[in-house]
Structures are given as structure tokens and as C-alpha cells.
Simulated assay, not measured.
Amino acid sequence: MTAQMKYYEMYDDVYIPGRWHLRFPLFKDGENELGREDDDERELFDTWRFSEGRVLEIERPIRLSVKPAGVALEYTEAMGIPIVHRRVVSLFERLGLQKEVQFIPVEVEGQTEPWFILNALQVIRCIDDARCEEVFYRLPEHGDPSRVGQYKNVRGLKVDPEKVGSANIFRTWGWLVVLIVSERVKSAMEQEGITGIKFIEV
């Protein structure tokens, strides 16, 4: 019997000493989508589109500020959006994962090398409710009819490998805040020595 593939949540290691922190995305001219430069308004940048599992057409260049500055990491999250160095792009190309992910160029303050938003192109309905520590569902009284039945919170996330299929990187339906990779991708990133990243088995 063939062993089932293992899967891991991939996330930003915020405890690396002296590391940098990337701030929320801005357009290249320093304004947000409303054409304003006010810090409070910048938070309105639509980050959710980067977790919807679809190819995006970005019309204006995106710039990221660094505050505080520190050691640059090859995997970082800015408002939950994965930002990666070109070495990650090259690794995914070698793994043949071009159809599973879109890399969107961004400019990072103080950096001359290329950086990219990692946009996973698959959303899979695979959360194993019974194996999770606890799940909470969105109900009609939560005020968003379009999201009823999705997850309001998930603790101790577990996925059902049989529902994942052959995917190597994806987000989970109903709980888009997590980014999941296969053991194959995890091992390759560890062997490559990609900095800034942590994994937890799901």
C-alpha cells in the first residue's frame, strides 16, 4: 500500500532575530487604490484577491515598504500575502509547478533584486473537520449570506489527503488564510535553504 502524501501549512517565521518586516502592499507611486496616501486608507488595499486561487491581472506596479528594516528573508508575509525571492521562483520552475502558482513581480524598498507575490492558483475543499481540534462555521446571523457554511475559525487544522489529489500548493476552501504545500515542496524548500519559512504538518 502506497503511503499517503503529507501536507504542511507554510508560514512566515516571525521570530528570526534581526529580520525585516514588510508592510502592506502599495502601488509604485505610493498611493493606494483610492489614490490617497493616508496611512489609514492604505489598509484598504484588496489583499483578499491574492488568496482566491485565480490568475490575477495587475495593472499597476506594487511596491512594499520595509519597516523595520533588517535581514532580508526569501519568504515573508505582508498582511498574509507571501512575498518570495527569485530563488523560490526558480525552485518552483524546477519542480514543474508553473500551472499551480502565479508569481507577480513587486518592488521592495531598498532592494534591487526581483521579488514576487506568490499567488497559489488552487482552492481545494479538503479540510478534515473530524480531525481538526475545533471548527466554527459561519452562520446566517454572522451577517454575510455568501459565506454561510464556510469556516469562521479552524483550530488544529487537518486536511484529508484523499481530497487533495495531485496538488502541491493550494489554499483550503472556506478557510483561505492558510497556504498548504505537499511534502515534496516542503523538502525541496528545506534542501534549497530558503530562509524565513516554517512548516507545520496538517
Rank of each mutant, 00 (worst) to 15 (best):
P105R: 12
L34E: 15
I169Y: 05
H85Y: 02
V177G: 09
G96C: 05
G193K: 01
L95F: 06
D128P: 02
L121N: 03
L121H: 10
L91T: 13
F170G: 03
F45T: 15
L34W: 15
M10A: 10
D29M: 07
P82F: 13
A188I: 09
V108E: 12
L56E: 13
E107I: 12
D128F: 10
K163Q: 11
L157A: 00
I83K: 09
G149V: 06
I194P: 04
V101D: 03
H85P: 01
H142I: 02
P105M: 12
N32K: 00
H142T: 05
D29K: 10
S65W: 13
T112A: 11
F199S: 04
V135P: 01
S65Q: 15
M79I: 08
R125Y: 02
I194G: 09
E134Y: 12
L44W: 00
G110C: 07
H142V: 02
I197R: 05
G35C: 10
E134D: 11
W20S: 09
A78M: 03
P161V: 09
G35K: 08
T47W: 08
D12A: 03
W173S: 02
V88S: 05
P17D: 13
V135M: 10
G165F: 04
I127N: 01
W20Y: 07
E9T: 13
C126I: 02
A3Q: 07
F92H: 08
D12T: 02
Q150A: 09
R131V: 10
I58N: 14
M189V: 01
I180K: 06
D13K: 02
E113T: 11
K186P: 05
D29P: 01
Q98T: 13
D46G: 02
